[in-house]
């Protein structure tokens, strides 16, 4: 097959200071690419779906980009109360950086938001928390 390829390996590699900088460069690159282009990404869950959403915004469809999880299982958590994003969460509970609520990290993952859902864990019995455990090292 002809056509260009673009490899996106985990954040920080390849001289990009941050994932957003890498995604901005990817957007610029895709604007100049032609049909037949393939995109391959490897990294953590949130990063992968940031790449997928960037690819979709550029017009790529399923079958034109490929994602592989690599590295940490840590989660990006979306606070369903204040919409804040909390990065690099490795525990079942996390304190929201936006509203301060203690969130339970659910397995529910949004591809659109590229994040796992976090819901207040002690809404019904304030202050009553389950034990904290590191589940996503």
């Amino acid at each position: 097959m002809q056509g260009a390829e673009f490899w996106v390996v985990a954040e920080g590699i390849g001289g990009f200071p941050s994932a957003p900088a890498l995604l901005a460069a990817l957007t610029e690159r895709m604007a100049a690419e032609r049909t037949g282009f393939r995109l391959y990404a490897a990294g953590t869950e949130g990063f992968l779906w940031d790449v997928a959403n960037t690819a979709r915004d550029a017009g790529l469809a399923e079958g034109e980009f490929f994602l592989a999880h690599a590295g940490s299982l840590c989660r990006r958590v979306y606070c369903t109360h204040c919409k804040a994003m909390i990065e690099n969460v490795s525990t079942n509970l996390v304190c929201c950086s936006g509203c301060g609520a203690m969130l339970f990290v659910r397995d529910h993952f949004s591809r659109r938001l590229a994040a796992f859902m976090g819901v207040q864990v002690d809404a019904e019995q304030p202050g009553v928390l389950p034990p904290v455990a590191t589940l996503y090292p």
């Binding site: 690419e33 049909t35 017009g59 034109e64």
Partner: peptide, 9 residues
């Protein structure tokens, strides 16, 4: 023509 199309075509 096919080779000259932008992504999303």
């Amino acid at each position: 023509i096919l080779a000259a199309q932008p992504l999303g075509t």
